[in-house]
């Protein structure tokens, strides 16, 4: 006897109904949760930026952001100016931190002008310039918020990634890696932009030499590390004219 569920017509109807139900269920979930997710992402950006300029709740070894409910208030308090650099012109924009770096990179690739967001923060009388940058790791995107002083010396950095290998590439967001960047010079001795190499042959694992344009790489995470170095080199280089101007004035 043929089973009811073996019939072709039943199979097709089942498939159609299933797709309709699952499809609308997913669409409903996605659209009803969208505002919450967008808000979470916005707060995370504020937390990341504050983290880079040293406003965080770090303990001895782990990286901790300020809490999400305090983030907007602290962001207002510490971030004094939000700048957008486009074709060498600097304008102020109160939502510069929301600029999508990925989109701007795509714009630049297709020949359009790229908007570069730069946030000016102030803490304990010190000025920080924080730039969001983005690049490629081993599996997926990696990005960072790098805080610099007016000489392009790194004051703090927060790295993050979409899907690097846990325990290896994913360790770029660990303190032992991020903290190595603090104090590193992006310019070389003759003030030309050199970036920072994530180096496997680094002879300075304790990172005492801050002007060698190198930090120690993570074992087993060569490609992610190279991605970090490449992202710093290509994206932060774009800010060099801004810092040159800053010094001349």
């Amino acid at each position: 006897m043929e089973n009811r569920t073996d019939k072709n017509s039943y199979t097709i109807i089942f498939a159609i109904v299933m797709v309709l139900i699952v499809g609308s269920l997913l669409a409903f979930t996605a659209s009803s949760l969208k505002p919450n997710i967008a808000e979470n992402k916005r707060l995370e950006k504020q937390q990341n930026i504050l983290y880079a300029m040293g406003v965080n709740e770090n303990d001895e070894t782990s990286a901790n952001f300020v809490s999400t409910d305090k983030a907007p208030e602290l962001f207002k308090k510490y971030i004094k100016k939000q700048l957008v650099i486009q074709d060498g012109k600097v304008t102020e924009d109160d939502e510069a931190y929301l600029i999508d770096v990925k989109k701007e990179q795509a714009n630049a690739k297709s020949g359009k002008a790229r908007r570069l967001p730069l946030l000016e923060g102030e803490k304990d009388g010190k000025t920080f310039y924080i730039a969001p940058i983005r690049g490629k790791g081993l599996w997926d995107a990696i990005w960072a918020y790098v805080a610099m002083d007016e000489n392009m010396v790194i004051q703090g950095a927060y790295f993050d990634h979409k899907g690097e290998t846990p325990g290896l590439g994913a360790n770029i967001k660990q303190r032992f890696f991020m903290d190595d960047f603090i104090g590193e010079h992006l310019l070389d001795a003759s003030n030309n932009f050199k970036g920072i190499d994530v180096s496997k042959s680094n002879a300075d694992p304790k990172n005492e030499d801050k002007t060698d344009n190198e930090v120690d790489a993570i074992a087993g995470a060569t490609i992610t590390g190279n991605g970090v170095a490449a992202m710093i080199k290509s994206d932060l280089k774009l800010y060099v004219p801004f810092f040159k101007n800053l010094k001349n004035n």
Partner: peptide
């Protein structure tokens, strides 16, 4: 579940579940 497409149904269920 129609036996002819049961693997697809299983895939849809697990994928939908994980995404939600």
């Amino acid at each position: 579940i129609p036996s002819k497409i049961r693997i697809i149904v299983q895939l849809v269920v697990v994928a939908a579940l994980v995404i939600i």
